[in-house]
Amino acid sequence: MISVKKVDNRPLNWLERIYLPEIARGLAVTLRHFFVNLFNPKGMPTVQYPEQQLELPHAAKTRTRHRLKLRADNSPKCVACFMCQTACPAYCIRIEAAEYPDNAVEKYPAVFDIDLARCVMCGMCVEACPEDAIAMDTLEIPGGEQDRARLKLTKEDLLRNLPGEPSVVGAANRLANEYLKSKGGA
């Protein structure tokens, strides 16, 4: 249903037609803002972004810079299934898979690049991940850079666990958990 707003297009009356009182009214509005802000700059809503940051609202916390989670033995949880690359609407993820010789998980990402210059921070990669390996909860908001290359995150940039990571074992991957157990991990 289209909402309709009736506009009252009545003709201007005499006072309005000579503009001057209306101009004065307009000036009163703008001048009020001007002087209020001039003498009380703290009242303005502007946030001086990089120096001053608001706390992110709940959902936005999970739309910050990506990270790749680690297992207890510091191997990436990621098994290079390419689900995030497939789901990514901005084509910003590039993965090259490789094979572990011993680890029962068999597959791991040899290359895992995220191009933040392309990323739209939609979080589809996190949704798609079947291994709970990628997250966007670092609370870092990627900003501008002088050089495109610096917006490219490699696997090394991405791999990190947050302090007090809820679980480094007990991931979706049964084989990984068993492998860690056999290695004597927690």
């Binding site: 290079a80 597959k107 084989l175």
Partner: peptide
């Protein structure tokens, strides 16, 4: 079935 589709090439 082990359901290891993420590492399986047949997926």
């Amino acid at each position: 079935h082990p359901l290891d589709c993420p590492v399986c090439d047949q997926a």
